[in-house]
Nucleic acid binder design. Structure first.
Lengths: 135, 135
DNA sequence: GATATAATTAATAAAAATTATTATTTAGGA
DNA sequence: TCCTAAATAATAATTTTTATTAATTATATC
């Protein structure tokens, strides 16, 4: 069992089921994955896993902040383990999504926005290096 | 007929149908809207409008860059008329989405990312002023 | 370690969202 | 005005997501 994942579930007050461990491990392995990718990956470990279980757990894992949704134009949402704030490079050709550390990329000029910021997400769409080379 | 919308369709090489004019006008009126909101608004003008027509046109309007999708965590995608680059303030309570000019909000420190940037999208989630007051 | 109980799961049905099909209508050029 | 390809309405089909339910299981308490 993945100790890291097990502890994470306990810390967030969720029961440690094999299904949850499998789902989180699948996401950790892939970095980012949509529902179908998670389901496929999870089934290699746990063939009897139900798709409905994946949906239900994704929901509760997001509610408990263990997972984060990444909504993407023209694709199904992907999910990632919660980690320190970062941004994404999203390839418009192959759809690949890659984390980037945005800490030094931008400098916030602050400002009064009359809005309580809880979360800042920067999505950068373009063509990744892989795609540039392959064509 | 909305001259602006009609010209926009012509410029993008799309036939000017009443349905398209209605859809674009609905989005322009609302600023941002998801499929259902567009459909509902459009039906007030054109009651025989089919939902499938809305879906089909949203697709071709995006392909021709007349519209832009805004994928949002925990909501259905919204659509907006293409306009100059900007960012969004997204309220996690009421779901409202508001444009902000991000031109002066951040300063890009450039960098070599090995990625051809086509589009940068910054989504800021939080609680809007309205919601802060109402509770 | 055994047991009680509430939560979780698999299987499935139901609902919601999106896309495909097709006959008819229409926009726009000849 | 007429022709033709494109667009539309209506609907079916498909895909995606959520709800239901009976059976199973994690975990707290003894």
């Amino acid at each position: 069992m993945q100790m890291k994942v097990v502890n994470s579930l306990k810390e967030h007050g969720l029961k440690v089921t094999p299904q949850r461990v499998t789902i989180l491990s699948a996401i950790e392995k892939k970095g980012h994955a949509n529902i179908d990718e998670i389901y496929q990956e999870a089934k290699t470990t746990n063939p009897t896993m139900s798709l409905a279980t994946v949906y239900k757990n994704i929901t509760s894992l997001i509610e408990t902040k263990l997972l984060k949704e990444v909504a993407i134009n023209n694709q199904k949402s992907k999910y990632e383990l919660s980690k320190k704030p970062h941004s994404h490079l999203i390839c418009k050709k192959c759809g690949n999504l890659e984390d980037i550390d945005s800490h030094n990329l931008f400098t916030l000029n602050s400002d009064k926005l009359d809005f309580d910021i809880e979360e800042v997400e920067l999505n950068i769409y373009g063509i990744c290096n892989q795609c540039k080379k392959s064509n």
